[in-house]
């Protein structure tokens, strides 16, 4: 199995990557720390999986060279499962990227990372409802301390492609 970590810059993809693979990818508290992709290996329920950490990107329409790397990695690996890492306190922008990837038919799980910061800011997210609408697993996580990572990985096998039409239907239609 191949798994790709994708998300906005500075949402903690590299932190996930290091936690999952035990690797030493540089992590910093600023966007743009990762400018190239890194591959690592992890074990999911006895099965070896390849995990790929890519630079942060705001959309699948790349604006700089680092974003190009991210989008190219997604398009080169058609058979991947995607972990879409979203900043829980800026959920709209994250869902935008997630939708773009879902539209291209990739199976996905969503990590609502920095859940603690969202709680601090008094932002409440109805996880169950979000899962119902999007049709993919959604897991709140705090990558730095490791909360939620186990659940995220265990639900990776539930990742499946979803039809955008279904999402629209679940959300109550477009205007």
């Amino acid at each position: 199995m191949k798994v790709l970590l994708i998300g906005h810059p500075n949402v903690g993809k590299s932190v996930f990557f290091n936690r999952l693979t035990g690797a030493n990818v540089t992590e910093s508290n600023y966007p743009g720390t990762t400018v190239d992709f890194t591959k690592g290996y992890m074990n999911i329920g006895g099965e070896d999986a390849e995990l790929i950490d890519v630079p942060g990107t705001f959309s699948l329409d790349p604006k700089d060279k680092a974003e190009e790397v991210a989008v190219a990695m997604l398009h080169e690996n058609k058979d991947v499962r995607v972990i879409c890492v979203i900043d829980a306190s800026k959920i709209e922008r994250g869902v935008y990227l997630a939708l773009e990837i879902l539209e291209e038919g990739y199976p996905m799980v969503i990590a609502l990372n920095m859940w603690d910061a969202a709680v601090d800011k008094n932002i409440r997210i109805d996880i169950n409802n979000l899962q119902r609408i999007l049709g993919v697993p959604v897991v709140p996580t705090v990558a730095i301390s490791g909360e939620g990572i186990k659940e995220l990985i265990s639900r990776l096998k539930e990742a499946k492609p979803v039809e955008i039409d279904d999402i629209i239907k679940n959300a109550g239609g477009l205007t």
Binding site: R124, D126, N129, L134, A171, G172
Partner: peptide, 9 residues
Amino acid sequence: KIAKQTVTF
């Protein structure tokens, strides 16, 4: 639409 149904500030 999604945000209105799932997120409260």
